[in-house]
Nucleic acid binder design. Structure first.
Lengths: 249, 249
DNA sequence: TAGTGGTCTAGACCACCAG
DNA sequence: TGGTGGTCTAGACCACTAT
């Protein structure tokens, strides 16, 4: 949840005058980052071994390891046994996007969140959803349609299917009072989540729900959740036009 | 680049019969994950201290620390000094999306990649781009329009501005031969990248370039790159209709 | 103020793989 | 086959914060 490296602490030991190098693994990582950006460590080149760097910086190998591992996670370095550590030619830190709960996203922006159930009940399952949920036979499937508001403005449209074979309790829940996302998170442990993002054109229902024109370009998030090998739920979130998702800096 | 936890190795020590616990930090993390999913560690509850777990599993505290740190990064645990480690009430592993280079994405899918320059030259800078690049005064700005193909099919449309104040060399590059993305990555170190995703409607140029109807819903990726406090480039990638971006499992 | 997590050290063994 | 990174241990000090 919180990046531990963001709280560099524990100033190592001593002081006096002996060790001239940076103190703490975060500082060491910073020094490595600087050398890479300044091309003191050239792109594609092999950097000194952990042991050599530990000697140079007057620290232990484990500390150097921790720092270099961080830089490797950031994509700046490529590490392999025996081959050593190389500066990545394409220091492309893959942008990462986090998909928060709708409620949290709205509240974080300082607006009031409201959830509104539109419809909940059994429903024929369209083929694409059927295959996503890997349904066999004719299990009961619950469909939920709902809106999420930021203040008075529609924020997102939710179209969800819940596999009653995996989550029979869901059939008895009062969905006027419980938002599916939050109820499921609180009540159904899951082991895997598949998420996809795409652009879509607002359909008849979503455009009415979001107060935009049919055919408007909207961002759609599809999420399928699994508990072991059993599918739990598949949901499409359609965000109101203009919605943007930002990378985590 | 590579998740180190994916290669659990080094089987710890001994064996004999003494330590019944899981071996290695990855195995320990797995055991913790299991307990959380099985509600053996209840949501919201505080789990035993690192020292206690180290004793229980017959390992060292550092190893337990490494494992629990991993689970915290995954969002399953919340750790704080003195307060101890708690099971997160919302074990929502934030889905993360990686934005690869267009070329890599195309080639990974087994198709042939081709880049085609449409236009490159000085150009008036529209206000939104101007503010994104934080341009002051009237620096020279290069605009590049290009297409990216997967086989014979248009894959993405690129509209890019390069800040000539920060990257004067860019003004002399032959953009018929070099794809801006790759040239910039290879030649300009950067320190920060801002990325946003949104849905957009294909405009006159992008629709013609992508071979779709004007107004089609398309996914657009905006990226602004910085070198220290100087903006390097701002680019809009418009993907052909139907493009989907998947989370990294 | 005491207990917990964050970090460091020094030494060690092992898996991997380029030469 | 040797060198490199991955990992483990045991002990230690420190920063933070709930009580």
């Amino acid at each position: 949840m919180i990046d531990p490296s963001a709280r560099p602490e524990g100033d190592a030991v001593d002081a006096e005058d002996a060790a001239p190098g940076p103190k703490g693994w975060a500082a060491i990582a910073e020094e490595g980052r600087r050398r890479i950006l300044n091309h003191e460590w050239m792109p594609g080149a092999t950097i000194p071994s952990e042991e050599a760097l530990a000697r140079e910086w007057g620290t232990s190998r484990v500390t150097v390891n921790r720092a270099l591992r961080k830089l490797a996670e950031e994509g700046l370095l490529d590490r392999r046994r025996r081959a050593g550590t190389r500066v990545n030619e394409r220091p492309l830190r893959p942008a990462s996007f986090e998909i928060p709960l709708v409620r949290e996203e709205v509240e974080r922006s300082g607006r009031r969140y409201r959830y509104e159930l539109v419809e909940a009940g059994g429903h024929a399952v369209p083929e694409p959803v059927r295959s996503r949920l890997m349904l066999r036979g004719r299990p009961r499937v619950l469909r939920i349609l709902a809106r999420h508001f930021a203040g008075r403005t529609p924020f997102a449209w939710e179209e969800r299917w819940i596999n009653g074979g995996t989550v029979p309790e869901a059939l008895a829940v009062d969905w006027r009072r419980h938002s599916p996302n939050e109820w499921l998170l609180a009540n159904v442990p899951y082991t895997r989540v598949d998420v996809a993002l795409c652009a879509s054109e607002a359909g008849p229902m979503s455009s009415r729900a979001l107060g935009c024109e049919e055919g408007s370009a909207v961002l759609m998030l599809e999420r399928t959740t699994w508990r072991a090998q059993w599918s739990v739920t598949h949901v499409n979130f359609v965000y109101a036009p203009g919605y943007r998702i930002w990378s985590l800096t």
